[in-house]
Each structure stands twice: as structure tokens, then as C-alpha cells.
Amino acid sequence: MKTYTSNLKGKRALVTGASSGIGAAIARELATLGVDLVLTARRHDALEAVAATCKGVKVEIVTADLGQPDAAHALWEAANVTGPIDILINNAGFGYFRRFDEVDWARDAELIQLNMTSLVALARCFVDTRKAKTGPAYMVNIASTGAYQSVPNMALYAASKAFVRNFSEALHDEHQGTPLSVTCVCPGGTETAFHAASGGGDYSWIANASTKRPEFVAHAAILAMLCGQRTVVPGLFNQLSTFGVRLLTRRFASRVATQVLGQPRFELPARSTT
């Protein structure tokens, strides 16, 4: 695994979706670099547990549900009370593994709000704030390998991540040569609670073989951020798959995705309100 050097000590980072998985791993990775943290998610107790593992830095907790309208602006105001944000990690998101017509609109509306609208709102707040400041700043948006193709049974989730990828890459290009760097991270399968919450799990050996630990993804994300990369796909197998779909017709790539991910579980877990 590659290592990196940085001068981030004393900087402040806002990490969304920081209560578990990739978000928690990124928070811990930033803490090792001396970055003070503002952690946010819906579960206060889980955030406290993550905060306890981020040693040697100041950690603030802001409980927020970014699946709700206008939550992003309230979060941004709360995060900036004790100082400016230098690093924005847009990690919060969720998906479900079901046919589009088998899921109620309320869950779809929340997915759109969380995966796209709140991400854009926070990005806008960050960009607007950085106009009046000097020094390097970093935005990292977490997308998915699903951003590279359509994914049956995850139609809306994959489409939302395609949006995140295109949006992030455009922002990167717009800010080329400025102190603000924007990086898009496109993980494949990762060992997090996402799979159980999405109703997935009946995956092929290919999907299981390419699954990475959240710490692996977090390290790749921060390394790419510090190197000013436009987009990074963590893991060789995932890099090969996202490149390989370019050689297939879009219809055939969609069929391959169906075979790799298998069939949805019988029951889709309820979306937690905590």
C-alpha cells in the first residue's frame, strides 16, 4: 500500500456518513494526519464510538439526517461554528437492491435527497466559503463502480452515483489550477453494513473476490485527495471492471452486472429512522 506525506495538521474536515464503514475509516485516516474532525450521521451513539477511535485530534459531533430537505445547510452552519472547514468528505449515501417498482416513493425520495441533493448543497457551501479564503482545500465525493454503467435492481442508486461522478469530475476540471482540489472515489464492494441494509448479499464469487475493507478504500481516497487526482477506483479488480465495461455494449454490461450481483434477498430491511 502506498504511503503519503502531508501538512494537514490543524486542518478541519467535515465527514458525512461517519458513523460506520468508509466514512468512519476516512475519519480515522484523517485523524492520523492530525486533522480535526466534524463527524456527522444520524446515529449519535455510533458517532461517539467512532470519535473515541480518532486519537490526538479535536472531534466534534453533529447529528444530522441528510436525507431530509435543508438538513445540509443546517449541518454546514453547525460545522463552521468553531472554525472553517478545509476538507469536505461527502460520503453519506444509501441504496437498495430491488426492482424499482417494488420500493415505495418515500425511500426513493430520501435516496435522491441524500445521495445527490444534500451532496450538492454541501459542495456549494464549501466552494462558496473557500472563495474568500487562501490555502489548499479538498473535496472528496464518494461515488461507486456502479457509476460506470446501469445496474438492474440498483437502478436509482447506480444512477445517483453516476451523477456524483460526473458532477465531481466537472468540479475538478473547473477548479484546475486553484487551491481547491476535487476528487471522486468509486469503490466497488466494501465490507460495510451497506449490503445488509440494501437487501443484497446473494453475490457471485466475482463480487465477493473484489470486495475490499473500508480501511483500504479510505487510504486510497486520502492518497488520491492529496495527489489531486480527479477520480480513483480502489482495487485492481475494480479498476479492470470499470475499464472493461467500456469494451462492452451498454446492454451487455447491464446483463453482466445482473449476473455478478445475483438476485435480491427475499425481504428488504426497513429504513432505520435513527
Rank of each mutant, 00 (worst) to 15 (best):
T63P: 00
T53E: 14
V50C: 04
E60C: 01
A79C: 06
P69K: 08
T40S: 15
L66R: 09
V57D: 03
D70K: 11
T63A: 15
A49G: 13
V38L: 01
V38C: 11
L39Q: 12
K58R: 14
W76R: 11
A52C: 01
L37Q: 12
E48Q: 14
L66S: 12
L66M: 08
A64F: 01
A64W: 02
D36M: 02
T40L: 03
V57G: 02
A79Y: 04
K55N: 12
V62C: 07
A72H: 07
L66T: 10
A71V: 03
Q68A: 14
V38T: 13
T63N: 05
C54F: 09
L75D: 08
A41E: 06
A78C: 02
L75N: 12
H73Y: 05
K55F: 06
C54T: 08
L39N: 13
A41P: 04
E60S: 14
L47M: 06
L39A: 08
C54E: 07
K58I: 05
G67N: 02
V59W: 01
G56S: 06
T53Q: 14
A64V: 00
G56Q: 06
H44T: 15
L39E: 11
A79Q: 09
Q68L: 09
W76Y: 12
E60H: 05
D45V: 05
A71G: 05
V57K: 03
T63S: 15
H44C: 05
A52S: 14
D70M: 03
P69S: 10
D65P: 06
E77L: 09
A79E: 04
A72C: 05
L66Q: 09
A52F: 05
E77K: 15
D70A: 12
R42M: 05
R42E: 08
T40E: 02
L75F: 08
T40G: 10
D65A: 03
D36C: 09
A71W: 03
V50R: 10
L37R: 10
I61C: 04
W76F: 06
V62E: 13
G56I: 01
R42I: 01
G56D: 09
A41K: 10
G67Q: 01
R42C: 07
A78P: 01
A46H: 15
C54Y: 12
A74C: 03
G67K: 01
A46Y: 04
L66V: 10
K58P: 00
D36Q: 09
V59N: 02
A74Q: 14
D65S: 06
L37D: 13
A74W: 00
A49S: 15
P69F: 02
L75E: 09
L47Q: 08
P69T: 06
A64N: 11
C54S: 11
L75V: 09
E60F: 00
V59T: 15
D70Q: 14
T40F: 07
A51K: 10
L37M: 08
H44A: 15
V38S: 08
A74S: 13
A51S: 13
T63H: 04
D36V: 07
I61W: 09
A64Q: 14
A51H: 10
